[in-house]
Simulated assay, not measured.
Amino acid sequence: MKLAGIHHVALIASDYPRSRDFYTRILGLEVVAEHFRAERQSWKLDLRLPDGTGLELFSFPAPPARPSRPEARGLRHLAFRVAALDPAIAHLQAQGVACEPVRVDEFTGRRFTFFADPDDLPLELYESG
Rank of each mutant, 00 (worst) to 15 (best):
L27Q: 11
G74C: 11
R103E: 15
P70A: 00
H8A: 04
D86E: 15
Y16C: 06
L47K: 09
V97F: 07
D51I: 02
R76W: 06
L29D: 06
R69S: 14
R110D: 12
L85H: 08
E71Q: 11
R40C: 00
R18I: 08
G5L: 04
E34S: 11
A90R: 15
E124C: 09
R48F: 00
C99E: 08
V32Q: 13
L125V: 03
E100C: 01
E100F: 04
H91S: 14
H8Y: 08
A33M: 10
F22C: 11
F112P: 01
E106A: 14
I26V: 15
E127L: 07
A79F: 04
R81S: 14
F112T: 04
L121H: 14
R73G: 12
T24K: 04
E124K: 06
T53G: 02
G109H: 08
P101Y: 13
P87I: 10
R18W: 00
Y16L: 05
F22I: 09
P17R: 05
R37N: 13
P70V: 08
E39V: 12
K2G: 00
W43A: 04
L55S: 09
Y126S: 11
E71A: 13
L121N: 15
Y126R: 10
L85V: 10
E56Y: 09
Y126K: 04
